[in-house]
Design a protein around this nucleic acid. Sequence first.
DNA 1: TATTGTTATACTCTATAACTATA
DNA 2: TATAGTTATAGAGTATAACAATA
Lengths: 143, 143
Amino acid sequence: MAELKREDSFGWLIAVLSRQLSDEFDQRLQALGLRIGLWPTLFALWEEDGVTQSVLTEKCQTAHYTTTRVLDELEKRGLVERRPHPTNRRATTVFLTKEGKALEHPAVAEAKACNARMLAGLSRQENDRLMTMLRKIAGLGSR
Amino acid sequence: MAELKREDSFGWLIAVLSRQLSDEFDQRLQALGLRIGLWPTLFALWEEDGVTQSVLTEKCQTAHYTTTRVLDELEKRGLVERRPHPTNRRATTVFLTKEGKALEHPAVAEAKACNARMLAGLSRQENDRLMTMLRKIAGLGSR
DNA sequence: TATTGTTATACTCTATAACTATA
DNA sequence: TATAGTTATAGAGTATAACAATA
């Protein structure tokens, strides 16, 4: 008999849910010609574009070389443009193209659908309580 | 302005927490000479050893080739033994060695410490409610 | 023909580090 | 010397598929 039960481990539950969510979301994004690896960067740009790559790196909580490669792919697909920074010649600023901007609505709709499906079994009150606690744990204040 | 806020997305919160947890847990396991990739298989064996690889594959929700490689590594480290199945000559049964069994207590202690640190900001009642909701979402009944 | 397990291959993510160019 | 970004390389996870042995 094990010393710990799976279902009693927060980490185990989070790992299971994370896997379920990323699988489902990745599949949904395929319908838009995207993949989940492109999502954090696109999302950050929908929040605010015209920022430098180092800003994107920080917002995505990823590594600078990952940002480089994701932007290469996004640029190749015509979703973003790299433009020289007006004053700092080392820096590059990143802008969404019209095509990149147009993807926000359908992509966010898929994200919302994904969340809704996962949380379908909870009441509105449970849903709110859950989100509040998760934000607290993730270190985002109670809001 | 974005159509969706990060902190309002269940999926985004789960992804952040999953990353935090796996980073912390992996670091804790290093102190025991383990890594996180070995954990699901070891955990399944602590629950019950002497099972076949296909059973482990199912319990770990992974792929059969992953089980093969993880067991290769565990065997090389002297934590498990593969033995022929008594009646089915295709199948292999997997047993923990004394060393593999001895790791359960310290490894589970790290898992519990990891969970406790993540949930430190919640009251006992919040903790219980959170776990109940997560189990529900993950499809594990309300327990 | 289906099952059990191994191997080959490839793609993504992650991590370290070396590199260019600018500040 | 530090910053911004690119590139090379390697380890780990994941996926498909081919394969051998057995049922």
